[in-house]
Amino acid sequence: MSSLLKRIEIPIFLTIVCCLLQVVPYYFYWKPLDDFATREAQWMNLIVATATFIGLISLVQVHGANVQKRSKGWYFSVVTLVCAVSFAIIGLPLPEYGLGSLSYWYLFLYNNGQVALSQAQFSLLAFFMTSGVYRAFRARNLESGLVLGAGILTVCYNAPAIVATYPFFADIRGLLNDIPNLALNRAVTIGAALGAIILAVRTLLGIERGYLRGGGD
């Protein structure tokens, strides 16, 4: 029995069926099938949401072991575990018991913890950006000169005081936006679509290994 369940053909078959279920009614419409496909897509979202505890399990495996072994910096692991478990409990969707996303403590932790941290982390980009610009923007040859030129002209346009004094930056930026930027975005988008289609072919034929068989056979 278990050797039968283990067969790789089962997941490949599931992949193909689910894929065709989404694609076919899009081109060949048949209402019951289309409704079923819509339902299946929602159903799949439930399956994805069920995986949520994998994160916690992995976290406990890594940080629990840290704490147990008292390895270097284990106290940080304690902090992580306590925060994870307490926020998960406070956020349980049980408003009947004063828990959930509209409860006082959830909003307290959300606004002062989650919001502060994610904004702070995101805003660090400004610094990385500045040092990146300073180090990488060198006109070493024609190509890097083009990156530099386009980049610096755009920066000039984006500075309110500069463009207020020298309005022609707006025109230059318009050209950059409408010509090379448009062309690049369009071409890369088309190419990425082709890549995704071919990847689908490989997956449907069962020759794409990465995701399904641990890269082996």
Partner: peptide, 26 residues
């Protein structure tokens, strides 16, 4: 790796004929 090169990557590194051939479709 820019854009579609990442889709080619897994075929390319595998070195397998079938996977590389799929890139011709691309």
């Amino acid at each position: 790796l820019i854009g579609e090169e990442i889709y080619a990557a897994s075929a390319y590194v595998s070195g397998e004929g079938e996977q590389i051939a799929s890139l011709a479709g691309q």
